[in-house]
């Protein structure tokens, strides 16, 4: 991958692509790499269990900060979804593969498919120009786990202090909360699944907690090899 392609300068900010190209000779390792080495994470697929936990590694995570109106225009133009203006809102695009989440009154988390975040950040920066805003690529610091299965809610009831019943966490809601003494972002993107955004340094702890808490139901943690 050429230097010119992986680095850019938009406005007064230098940006760079955090995904090494296939020819860069670097094997990317997700935050669950240690868990995988320990045998706690298996390849995707296999016999159906009552709970499935699937890591979606290497997604593009961007934190946007700034005024809602300014950012809303730019996000709508680039992603085709409007910024969730209501607290704790989570919106997905038509495909369901890109999401924008309310984090605090001036902060949103954007998650896009792997490799899209570099171009997206540059396009957003170009569009926002001199507006008062910040964009930070936090993809290296966290990873996303999808929880599905009939017992997924019961597993969460043992793990988080938040009310995960339908009236507490309906589809389209996302909260930061306490998960087994650490912090996670808990999201409800669709009826069928929950999502956990876990910090890199706590990823192995979270996986081992999930495996332990899910043992009575049958639970497997899966992640596709890079």
């Amino acid at each position: 991958m050429s230097e010119a392609h992986s680095e850019a300068s938009v406005g007064n900010a230098a940006t760079f692509d955090t995904h090494p190209g296939a020819d860069a000779g670097v094997t990317p390792e997700s935050p669950l790499q240690w868990s995988r080495v320990q045998g706690h994470v298996t390849e995707e697929g296999g016999a159906a269990e009552q709970i499935r936990v699937v890591e979606r590694p290497f997604l593009g995570h961007l934190v946007l900060r700034g005024g809602a109106i300014t950012l809303d225009e730019a996000v709508r133009a680039e992603l085709g979804v409007s910024l969730p203006g209501k607290p704790l809102g989570l919106v997905l695009d038509a495909e369901g593969s890109r999401s924008v989440q309310w984090v605090s009154p001036d902060e949103w988390l954007v998650i896009v498919p792997a490799g899209e975040e570099f171009e997206l950040e540059n396009r957003l920066r170009a569009r926002l120009g001199d507006a008062h805003f910040a964009i930070v690529n936090v993809g290296g610091g966290q990873t996303l786990l999808e929880l599905s299965g009939e017992k997924a809610r019961e597993l969460l009831m043992k793990s988080v202090v938040y009310d995960v019943h339908e009236h507490g966490l309906p589809v389209g809601k996302a909260v930061g909360t306490v998960f087994a003494k650490t912090s996670v972002v808990l999201r409800r993107p669709t009826e069928a699944r929950f999502e956990l955004v876990v910090r890199r340094s706590f990823a192995d702890y979270c996986v081992r907690w999930l495996r332990d808490a899910g043992r009575e139901y049958g639970l497997r943690v899966e992640s596709a090899s890079p």
């Binding site: 607290p87 605090s104 202090v161 938040y162 909360t177």
Partner: peptide
Amino acid sequence: PYCQEYREEEEF
């Protein structure tokens, strides 16, 4: 007052 709902004391 920002999340606009009641939350567990542990989060604070």
